[in-house]
Each structure stands twice: as structure tokens, then as C-alpha cells.
Amino acid sequence: MLHEVLHAPEPTGADELELFGRLSGSWRLSWRGLGPDGTWSTAVGELHVGRVLGGRAVQDVWVVPGPGEPGAGVPPRAFHGTTVRFPDPQVPGTWRSTWMDPVNGRVRRFTGRPTGDGGVVLLSDDDRPWLRWRFTDVRADSFTWSAETSRDDGRTWVHDELMTARRVD
């Protein structure tokens, strides 16, 4: 029954939901991440996105490395988490987003906004370090996701993750 009440085939407020709703479907991910020693690691994974909660939100599930891949489910490099995102009715053009990753015990809240060039930037500044996540080069069959970290309240940023996504459905 959960899937029947959680998933929604159609959006409520279609125009607002398209910022993330356009990503609905399944994706293959190529991930690069910067380790504490300054070296980059790589992995492949998957992403699944859909409308939920009566069509009022968009939920995604990220799995890196993907099932059966080396390092799958092994912290701290692996993540298997979900994000629920919805337009903030109090602040037009703004999204609320919460990321949960039980593999690493992380929960982060973000505020998201469109960038004007078809992308999205999300900022989490209510905990340390600050995180900035970006969706760029968004097309029907691909996009790029990147992550930056700031340990000085946004004065400087370190680019520490990059994923390219290719639609598989």
C-alpha cells in the first residue's frame, strides 16, 4: 500500500514541479569524489526520480556505488539515500529539500532555486560544513550534478563531487 499512497503519476501544480519533475525516471550515474587525502575516486551508480505525496513533491533515490558494484553500501564513500523536494508556498521560486543517507547517518536540509540557465542550485547553510549542490546542463537525457563544501561560511568553496547522469528509461 505504501507505493500507492506515496507515488503520484501526475503533478499537482505542474509548472512549479517541473524544476525537479523533469528529472522523473531512471538514470545511470558516473560519480567522482574527492577524498580526504586529495585524490579523486570514481564509481557508477543509479538514480530514480518520481512525483510523490499527491503530486506535490518530487522524491529521488541515489545509490552510489550501484548494486553489485565494488564498495556498494560501504561508508564513507558509498551513499544510498533519498531526497524529498517541494516548492515552498511561502517563498515563490524557492524549493525546500531534505537529503537523508542512512549509510552514513546524514540528514541535511537545503533551499533550492533555479539558476536562470535551466539549472538549479541548492544551499545547506544551517549546519557545518555548508554544502552547495548544483544541477547543470539539464537536458531530456542527461544532466550534471556537482557538490561543493565551505568550511568558512561561504567565503570559499571546495569542489568535491561530480556526477554525470544519463537517462536509462
Rank of each mutant, 00 (worst) to 15 (best):
G35D: 13
G55T: 01
H48E: 15
V84W: 03
P75V: 02
P36W: 13
G68Y: 05
F86I: 03
V49K: 00
V52F: 03
G38L: 07
W40E: 03
G45W: 02
D60T: 02
R51S: 12
W62V: 14
A78C: 07
A72Y: 12
L53E: 10
G73Q: 02
T39N: 14
L53Q: 13
V74G: 09
G81H: 00
L47M: 11
G35V: 06
T82S: 13
V58E: 05
V64H: 04
S41Q: 15
V74H: 05
D37W: 02
G35E: 10
A57F: 06
V61P: 02
A57Q: 02
V61W: 15
D60Y: 01
P75M: 04
D60F: 03
R77E: 10
P67I: 13
D37C: 01
G81Q: 00
T83Q: 09
F79W: 08
W40L: 11
G45K: 04
R32P: 00
P65Q: 05
L47Y: 05
P65Y: 03
F86G: 10
G38R: 08
P67G: 12
V61G: 09
P36F: 13
S41F: 12
H48Y: 10
T82D: 00
R77H: 09
H48K: 11
E69Q: 15
R32N: 11
P67Q: 14
V64K: 02
D60A: 04
W40N: 01
T39G: 13
G73D: 01
G68T: 09
F79L: 12
G66S: 07
V84P: 01
S41R: 15
Q59A: 14
W62S: 03
E46A: 12
L47I: 05
L47C: 12
T42C: 12
Q59C: 10
P75A: 14
E69Y: 12
V58G: 09
T39S: 13
G33N: 09
S41D: 14
D37Q: 06
R85V: 07
V64Q: 09
L34N: 03
V74C: 08
G66W: 11
P70A: 04
W62Y: 11
E46D: 14
P76H: 08
P67V: 12
G50V: 04
P67A: 15
A78E: 02
A43M: 04
H80K: 08
L34T: 01
T39K: 10
